[in-house]
């Protein structure tokens, strides 16, 4: 579903992502982990078509993002980490706006939008302007709108930020349900417990470089941490990368 070929991204002299090669098959929940500033969000922006890579190519469902960006984006439901929305629209109006934008129409549209809003606990307040929503409500509205066009791929950046425990449980179950129905999910997170519980496979990025990919067991094996948890493996994998060259700090 996702194929990244030799992706690099430079911001001036800073190299945010370096030679990233990655494939995520259909129906997989892929967790993308890394320390702050490792390049997770940049990678998500590239996959979502928000920015173009400096080098390399992105394929979504075998569609080249550079050549056919509109077609590729139609396959994606993007959920950013910060829920910036059109504050002067109501929740239901935003759903309708999204439906128009993605070309979703038909008689059942309003019912489908209301069902999604109901699932995310927003139906009662769907006629209020978004400006009165809390951070968590806005986050849930984006999730609801991203599912409206039934995309085969969900790209989500830090899904649990701003959600209450009930919301976290709901999203966790939803993701597993979507994946069992064949949807692919690419999720960046700092919550290692979440990644450990729901992800089929995990990729760890550090300083813009993909340092490890695999199942939890494979990562633990690569990190040589035995029966320790994912946190230990994560720290070891990112630490080795960071502290392999202590001279960097001195210089």
């Amino acid at each position: 579903m996702i194929r990244l070929e030799n992706i690099s991204k430079h911001y001036g002299s800073t190299q945010a992502v370096r030679s990233l090669d990655l494939q995520v098959p259909q129906g997989e929940l892929f967790g993308f982990l890394g320390p702050n500033g490792a390049g997770k969000t940049t990678t998500i922006r590239i996959i979502g078509g928000l920015i173009a890579p400096t080098t390399g190519r992105v394929f979504i469902d075998d569609i080249d993002m550079q050549r056919e960006p509109e077609r590729a984006k139609r396959c994606i439901g993007l959920i950013p980490d910060r829920p910036f929305l059109y504050e002067k629209l109501s929740g239901l109006e935003f759903m309708r706006f999204t439906a128009d934008l993605y070309g979703v129409s038909g008689d059942g549209l309003v019912q489908r939008a209301e069902r999604l809003l109901d699932f995310f606990g927003l139906l009662e307040r769907s006629n209020e302007l978004i400006e009165s929503y809390s951070h968590g409500m806005k986050q849930r509205l984006i999730m609801a709108s991203s599912l409206l066009h039934e995309p085969p791929l969900i790209v989500v950046d830090e899904p649990m930020v701003g959600l209450d425990p009930k919301g976290i449980k709901m999203v966790r179950e939803l993701f597993r349900e979507l994946v069992s129905g064949g949807t692919t999910i690419f999720m960046s997170t700092h919550t290692l417990k979440l990644a450990e519980d729901v992800c089929d496979r995990i990729g760890i990025i550090n300083k813009g470089r993909l340092v490890a990919t695999g199942s939890i067991a494979e990562l633990k094996q690569a990190a040589r941490v035995g029966d320790a948890d994912l946190e230990e493996a994560f720290l070891r994998l990112t630490q080795e990368e960071t502290f392999d060259a202590p001279g960097d700090y001195a210089n």
């Binding site: 928000l50 509109e70 984006k73 950013p80 910036f84 929305l85």
Partner: peptide
């Protein structure tokens, strides 16, 4: 559009 401009960028509209 402000910070909500990501909606336009991620939409299937050039």
């Amino acid at each position: 559009e402000g910070p909500a401009f990501w909606i336009v960028r991620s939409a299937p509209v050039s």
